[in-house]
Amino acid sequence: MELKEFTKKVDDVLIRHKSILDITSKLHETDGKINRAIAKAVTECGCIKINAFKQDMPENINYSDLSKYMKNHIEGRLCHTCEEKIVEEIGDHMFYIAALCNNLELSTDEILKKKYNEIETLGKFSLF
């Protein structure tokens, strides 16, 4: 399935929450649900742990080598149940991203192509 098909299907099935206000509030809600699902994976299930600390970087390091020293602070792996829940919540979030693009007559494909080209052109420096 392509992104264009997904975006079209969202437009076909979205009826009740078609207002831009509904969509933006649902985006905020789904973002919170993703955060909550990750927190529950840590605090209720325990399949992952977060061991956050200050990122230590050697002095005079080349920016392109920096990723070798950066940590994601996650210990462990998501269990099947937590992974399913987080995938579900991310899917809901993507649904409302597609709905937002549809309402504003923006192409999800073009947005991703533009971001990809920006990353491709600027490389690691695009996120600095």
Rank of each mutant, 00 (worst) to 15 (best):
T30V: 04
I38K: 08
Q55H: 04
Y96L: 02
D92S: 05
L106H: 07
N35Y: 02
L21Q: 12
L106Q: 09
I38C: 04
K85M: 08
E83M: 10
K113V: 10
E110P: 00
L106F: 11
D92W: 02
E59W: 12
I90K: 05
E83T: 07
S64N: 11
E29N: 13
T43V: 12
E120F: 11
D56N: 07
E105Q: 13
I48P: 01
D31Y: 15
I97F: 03
V13K: 07
I86D: 02
N60A: 07
Y116I: 08
I86T: 01
K26G: 00
T81K: 14
F6L: 05
M57T: 12
I48R: 06
R16T: 15
K115A: 13
L104A: 02
L112I: 12
I23Y: 05
C45K: 06
N117M: 13
S107D: 05
D11E: 14
G32M: 05
G76K: 00
K71P: 02
D65I: 00
K54E: 12
E44T: 12
I15L: 10
S126W: 09
S126P: 03
G123D: 06
C47M: 03
N62H: 08
I111Q: 02
A39W: 06
K33C: 04
T121M: 14
S126L: 07
Q55A: 04
T108N: 02
D22S: 14
K33V: 00
E118W: 10
T24V: 12
K49P: 03
L104M: 11
S67K: 13
D31F: 15
E29Y: 14
D65F: 06
N117Q: 14
T121P: 03
S19H: 10
T7S: 06
D31L: 15
K85V: 15
L78I: 06
N62S: 05
K40L: 10
K124I: 11
D31N: 15
T43G: 10
K71D: 14
K40H: 09
L14P: 04
K114C: 06
